[in-house]
């Protein structure tokens, strides 16, 4: 039996989860449009479909817990508090972007929000997360490090090295594998001898659990529990969130390796309308309120696009800036 939402969080926080998922989706759909117009260039990996993971997980963490992610991280940054307009400007390559236009879609960074970056070498952020966790432990700070990565990362050496290291040094790291079942076009069954990712952690003596990554409240509960375990024990914990990306790996990928039937099954579990139904059914929000939220998010994203369009390009001299201190 499904838990009643009010048993988990107060109404306004539940509605906020909905709003964060909506803005994540709206932002990505606007990115797709701006990409087809040629305003966003380079690689563009969209998060549509996976919103419940970023939103639920972020809500389960403390505000100053470190977060690191991979290259599908726009929503992660925005949910953490990055201004959509500065994220969009970064994607446009403008000087007003989060990273002054030097990073782009895959390298968002907001240290004031403890959002410690999007990394684009598969598995590259796991050792960095261990290092941040070590610094926090060494400095006796009450913060854990949440490290997000995809199912594609679990066969990299850094995955195994980092899990071993985090347990060995007793580092407060929460590993969150967003298993969307595909590393670009290779299904997890075709790349992993043991496709149930969370079972791999027994080799490193790290507790793990699997959660439905299409259910924002389930993710929230799992991450909140795991984060407290990490905080109390000072040791790592591992969550596998099963989810699905509604688009291809990047805008360059039509995703022909997935069947229409499979896609439809997952679309029917779209986390946003599913959560909206629960909010309505349990009387937490009225349809008008949700409609107002959707409109507000659309307007915010439109403002972000306008801001990005109107922002200046980086100046030539900036090529040589911010490399060395």
């Amino acid at each position: 039996m499904e838990t009643k939402l009010r048993a988990v969080l107060p109404d306004h926080e539940l509605v906020k989860l909905y709003e964060q998922m909506v803005i994540g989706r709206e932002f990505e759909e606007a990115c797709a449009e701006q990409y087809t117009k040629g305003h966003i260039t380079g690689f563009l990996h969209l998060y549509s479909g996976q919103e419940a993971v970023a939103v639920g997980a972020t809500a389960g963490l403390h505000k100053d817990d470190y977060i690191l992610s991979a290259y599908r991280e726009h929503a992660q940054a925005i949910v953490r508090g990055a201004e959509p307009k500065r994220v969009m400007a970064e994607l446009f390559g403008k000087a007003t972007g989060l990273c002054k236009g030097k990073g782009g879609s895959m390298h968002l960074f907001a240290p004031e929000l403890s959002f410690m970056g999007g990394y684009a070498i598969v598995g590259g952020q796991l050792p960095v997360a261990c290092g941040l966790a070590f610094s926090a432990k060494y400095r006796q700070e009450d913060r854990i490090t949440a490290c997000f990565f995809g199912d594609g990362a679990v066969n990299q050496g850094t995955f195994h090295e980092s899990l071993n290291w985090a347990r060995l040094w007793e580092l407060p790291v929460l590993f969150v594998c967003e298993n969307n079942f595909y590393g670009i076009g290779t299904e997890v069954h075709r790349s992993s001898a043991l496709p149930t990712v969370h079972k791999r952690t027994c080799g490193y003596d790290i507790p793990s659990e699997k959660v439905d990554g299409m259910d924002v409240v389930a993710v929230f509960k799992a991450v909140k529990y795991a984060a407290e375990k990490v905080r109390e024990s000072g040791r790592p914990y591992f969550i596998e969130a099963t989810t699905y990306r509604f688009r291809g790996h990047s805008m360059a990928d039509p995703a022909k390796y997935r069947s229409a039937a499979e896609h439809e099954i997952w679309k029917s579990r779209d986390p946003i309308p599913a959560f909206a139904r629960r909010l309505l059914d349990e009387g937490i929000a009225a349809e008008e309120e949700l409609e107002a939220i959707r409109k507000r998010c659309t307007a915010t994203v439109q403002d972000a696009v306008t801001f990005a369009e109107e922002s200046p390009w980086p100046e030539d001299r900036q090529i040589w800036e911010d490399i060395y201190v």
Partner: peptide
Amino acid sequence: NTIVGVAVGAAMGGL
């Protein structure tokens, strides 16, 4: 690889 990566993270964290 992780030795260097841990140093990267530790430096980012203020060590």
